[in-house]
Design a protein around this nucleic acid. Structure first.
Length: 489
RNA sequence: GGCGCUAUCGUCUAGGGGUUAGGACGUGAGAUUCUCAAUCUUAAAACCCGGGUUCGAUUCCCGGUAGCGCUACCA
């Protein structure tokens, strides 16, 4: 039977269908992102479906975690979330239709028998595929055994010969010999569907036009194609996305560090940076250049939506590079208008239990000064504390290096001069310091470095005189005069 | 083991029958001297191997190798 033409009717309908057996992980997030991008680009519909048919491993907490991750990334869905656990009737019905159509049959083999036979087959060098022994049980006998209460699973009857192929939007034509396909289980003996049944039943029921999912599903696809045909449903367009790997090129796992999207939020990554980074893992604009002729890499979500296409998805797996992510993060933080960055910083403070003791104006000023050198949102609650509160720590190494010898004493004196100053601008503070250095016969750099540590607690900071202006005259004077009592080393 | 997919700098990638094989991250060097986790300049760094097609393959084809995926009454 020839396939019905693929559903290209616009607008497209796509879905992200995570299994709540863990938090939203990086790979899932990227799949969700691509589906979302595709839906938004085409004006289609993005559906969220929770595949929770594995009751043992699924949990509400995981569902909430997945939703949280999607919200953080700004991936809003148009329909759902739908829960497969509440749609079991549909799957049973679909299985029954398959049986009635002669495409599926009850299987009475027990799990133990199956395991044993698989083991034997492997031991004797055969393929551990189901031997189809229940496929030829007479209909009457099967009905009688089920009536007698014998547990039975429903298996799909894979055609004995020929091949099954599909046209993947990313990989092109992919073909499998039917002989290599097992008579897979559709419905377990407890009435719970397996993955193959529930996805196909739902994808048909939800009228999905494009299935964008991880490449780990390529091998599952021919079975599902067969099911679509048995159900006389039009085939969607399949687009398999290559996998994301860890630095050692094995599948990304906890071993490699964070795999949960929320962990990146907790690391102070801003969502747009993460989304931008993720979008370029396994997808490319095809070499879009910026004004300088360099490949563009920073894209707003609007641009991403406009640019996204299935054609740009690459075929090979990609390694998740933390350094590159960190770079995206600094770029985004640096370029955010303060108005946009400030709420994120405040959220970070809240998380860290830190309360700034500054006016809104001072806070805005300090964020403006600091954002070009922030690596993560975390910096605002750690290294940058001194700009927002008087409770900050002096970095011991920086103090040892720059607050040694007679420097503290000089800073106390310098602080008094600043207190008495009638003007307090970047130019005036610098002039004052340099004059003071000359008067004392020492290099200005010594005082500059010492002041930096006394004022910010850090050995690294923006231009000292910009820092002074941000801090204000009284605070500068006070902190310099306190320098002498700071424990050194 | 079987089946499937993939292969350009360390990493993400552009490109494509003839190129100095481009960009970015990271790394090295230099500059700035008020620190560097900032900025600027700069350098090193790749077409997996073997056949074939071709005047010419990194590019097309075949094989190998390697990596990854699937191989459950998990998803």
């Amino acid at each position: 039977m020839p396939d019905l033409p693929p559903q290209q009717a616009k607008p497209p309908r796509v879905r992200f269908a995570p299994s709540p057996t863990g938090y939203l992980h990086v790979g899932g997030a990227r799949t969700a992102l691509f589906n979302w991008l595709f839906a938004r680009h085409t004006g289609g519909t993005f559906i969220l479906r929770i595949e929770d048919t594995d009751f043992e491993r699924s949990s509400d907490a995981m569902v909430e975690g997945i939703l949280e991750g999607m919200r953080w990334l700004g991936l809003d869905w148009d329909e759902g979330p739908f829960f497969q656990s509440r749609r079991l009737d549909l799957y049973k019905e679909t299985a029954a239709i398959s049986v009635a159509g002669g495409h599926a049959y009850p299987c009475f083999c027990s799990k133990e028998d199956l395991d044993n036979r698989r083991k034997e087959a492997t031991a004797s060098g055969h393929q551990p595929m189901y031997d189809r022994r229940c496929r030829h049980i007479a209909k009457e006998e099967a009905v009688a055994r089920i009536a007698a209460g014998e547990p039975a699973a429903i298996r799909f009857a894979v055609p004995e010969g020929g091949a099954t192929s599909f046209d993947d939007a990313v990989f092109g034509k992919v073909e499998f010999q039917n002989a290599d396909l097992e008579d897979f289980v559709l419905l377990r003996s407890d009435g719970i569907p397996t993955y193959h049944l529930s996805v196909v039943a739902d994808d048909i029921d939800m009228r999905l036009t494009h299935i964008i999912r991880g490449a780990d599903h390529i091998s599952n696809t021919p079975k599902q194609v067969l099911l679509y045909r048995a159900l006389e449903a039009p085939l969607p367009v399949f687009a398999h996305v290559p996998l994301i790997l860890g630095p050692d090129k094995t599948r990304l796992s906890k071993r490699h560090g964070a795999t949960s999207v929320i962990a990146y939020k907790q690391m102070g990554i801003v969502p747009e940076a993460f989304r931008n980074f993720l979008s370029l893992l396994g997808w490319t604009t095809g070499g879009l250049k910026d004004a300088n002729g360099k490949d563009r890499e920073i894209f707003s979500s609007e641009e991403l939506v406009n640019l996204f296409s299935l054609e740009g998805i690459s075929k090979s797996n990609a390694v998740f590079d933390n350094d590159k992510l960190a770079w995206f993060n600094t770029e985004y933080i640096r370029n955010y208008p303060v108005a946009q960055l400030k709420p994120l910083v405040e959220q970070e403070w809240k998380l860290a239990g830190f309360t700034p003791t500054r006016s809104e104006k001072e806070i805005t000023h300090a964020i403006e000064l600091l954002k070009p050198r922030a690596r993560s949102l975390k910096d605002f609650a750690s290294a940058f504390r001194g700009y927002f509160s008087d409770e900050y720590e002096i970095d011991a190494a920086a103090a040892a290096k720059f607050l040694s010898g007679n420097v503290p004493a000089l800073l106390v004196e310098l602080g008094a001069r600043y207190l008495a100053a009638t003007e307090f601008t970047e130019a005036s503070t610098e002039a004052l310091l340099r004059a003071f250095a000359e008067e004392k016969g020492i290099k200005a750099g010594v005082l500059i470095n010492g002041s930096r540590v006394a004022l910010t607690g850090q050995g690294v900071a923006p231009s000292l005189f910009a820092v002074m202006v941000a801090l204000g005259q009284h605070r500068v004077a006070a902190r310099l005069q306190k320098a002498v009592v700071q424990p050194v080393g």
